[in-house]
Design a protein around this nucleic acid. Structure first.
Length: 219
DNA sequence: GACCAGGCACATC
DNA sequence: GATGTGCATGGT
C-alpha cells in the first residue's frame, strides 16, 4: 500500500511542479560544496557563497585545500555559520584531496564504504553525506531532510518520531531503486515543503488542492 | 520583530 | 539514547 501512496504522491508533485533540475551545480565537486553550505540554510544564500568561490577561482578541491580557514570563511560568509562551515568544508576537502585526489578518485568505492567514510568526516552528517552520494556521485541513496519527515508524518505515512534511517528506509524499500526517481522525489519534497509545509501549521489555507499535502495532512 | 532556511557536533543528564 | 544549545546570514 505504501508503495502506491508514495508513487501517487510523486506523480501529483511532478504534475504540479514539473522536474526540479537538481542538483543546481555544474560539477560533482560543486555539488559536494553546496551540500555542506546548505546545512540549515536557504539555497539563495548558498548561491552567493558559491559565486564568491567561483569569482575567487577557488571552486576546486585544490583551490579550497590551499586556502586558510579564515580566507575560506570570508568567501562563504553569505551562507551563514561561516566559521563552522569553513571548518567542515576544509575537513571534507582535506579528506578528499589527501585520500582520493578529487571526486573522480571516489569511483571505485562501494556506496556503503563511501557513506561510512563521508560520515567519518567531522561536519558531514547523514543528509550531507547522502546528498553527495545521490546528487554528486549518482549513487542509489534516498536523501532525507526536515521536509521529508514533516511531509511524510503529516500525511500519515510514518510515525512523527521516526528517525533519519527509518525515513530513508520508508522510501528506499517502497520505491523502485532508481537514481533519477530518488533525485526528483527529494527535490519535489523540498519544493513542496518550502512553499507549503512549514514547521508551524499554516496549512488551513493550503492552496494546493490535489497535492498529498491536501489529501492526508493531519494538521 | 518573529520566523524560517535542503544540519551538525558537542555537552549534559 | 534522548534532549538542549551554539552557530549566522538573508528573505518574508
Amino acid at each position: 500500500m505504501t508503495s502506491e501512496q508514495l508513487m501517487e504522491m510523486y506523480d501529483l508533485m511532478l504534475e504540479r511542479f514539473g522536474p526540479q533540475g537538481w542538483w543546481p551545480g555544474e560539477t560533482p565537486f560543486e555539488v559536494a560544496v553546496g551540500a555542506v553550505l546548505t546545512q540549515n540554510t536557504s539555497w539563495a544564500n548558498v548561491e552567493k557563497a558559491i559565486g564568491n568561490l567561483k569569482a575567487a577561482g577557488r571552486l576546486s578541491a585544490e583551490g579550497i585545500h590551499d586556502l586558510e580557514r579564515e580566507e575560506l570563511a570570508a568567501l562563504i560568509r553569505p551562507a551563514g555559520y561561516f566559521n563552522v562551515k569553513a571548518k567542515r568544508l576544509k575537513n571534507l576537502v582535506d579528506w578528499l584531496v589527501e585520500n582520493y585526489g578529487d571526486m573522480d578518485g571516489l569511483e571505485g568505492l562501494s556506496t556503503y564504504q563511501l557513506r561510512e567514510e563521508l560520515l567519518g568526516v567531522n561536519g558531514v552528517g547523514r543528509e550531507t553525506a547522502d546528498s553527495i552520494l545521490l546528487y554528486a556521485l549518482s549513487r542509489e541513496i534516498f536523501v532525507v531532510d526536515a521536509y521529508t519527515g514533516r511531509i511524510a508524518s503529516r500525511h500519515g505515512l510514518i510515525d512523527a518520531e521516526a528517525d533519519y534511517e527509518q525515513l530513508r528506509g520508508l522510501f528506499e524499500s517502497n520505491l523502485p531503486t532508481d537514481v533519477q526517481l530518488y533525485n526528483e522525489y527529494h527535490a519535489l519534497l523540498v519544493r513542496v515543503g518550502n512553499e507549503f509545509c512549514k514547521p508551524r501549521p499554516k496549512c488551513e489555507r493550503c492552496p494546493l488542492v490535489g497535492l498529498p499535502h491536501e489529501i492526508e495532512c493531519q494538521y
